[in-house]
């Protein structure tokens, strides 16, 4: 149940890994689509918090190319629906997320990523 909305907020939190630790790269993922309720107001409020480039990259990695490379000026309903689909309806069920900096692997099983660190990695 890693949705891209949370993936977009997630950086590596291992000890000493403070730069270039975002976004985590997907590996060997299995994706599942599940419908969710469309809430345009929530999306409009959320767009400023998104790291757009990372979101588009992540969506491409998962095989979804519906989003433009730059966020459009006008937020019409069609665009918001695409965004809604990418952010809230694409669930990563299996696979792993890898930190681009320290190569820490966060495995995802059953839709739940394992974010636990070993003792020497705790900051």
């Amino acid at each position: 149940m890693v949705r891209l909305i949370t993936h977009n907020l997630l950086a590596c939190h291992a000890k000493g890994c403070t730069s270039n630790n975002f976004p985590l790269q997907f590996k060997d993922v299995q994706v599942e689509l599940r419908e969710a309720e469309f809430n345009p107001d929530f999306l409009r409020g959320f767009i400023p918090r998104l790291e757009w480039g990372a979101l588009v990259d992540a969506a491409r990695q998962l095989g979804d190319t519906s989003l433009p490379a730059e966020p459009p000026e006008m937020l019409d309903v069609e665009f918001l629906q695409k965004l809604h689909h990418v952010l809230l309806e694409v669930h990563v069920e299996e696979g792993a997320m890898i930190c681009p900096n320290c190569n820490h692997v966060y495995p995802i099983s059953n839709g739940i990523p394992n974010m636990l660190l070993a003792e020497h990695e705790i900051g």
Binding site: M1, V2, I5, L10, I112, P113, M115, I122
Partner: peptide
């Protein structure tokens, strides 16, 4: 449940971006 779930030890800290 609808939310995203994480297996995480809160005593180890979160990795969420600032202002999430």
């Amino acid at each position: 449940v609808e939310g995203d779930l994480f297996l995480q030890d809160i005593g180890q800290g979160f990795g969420f971006r600032p202002g999430s």
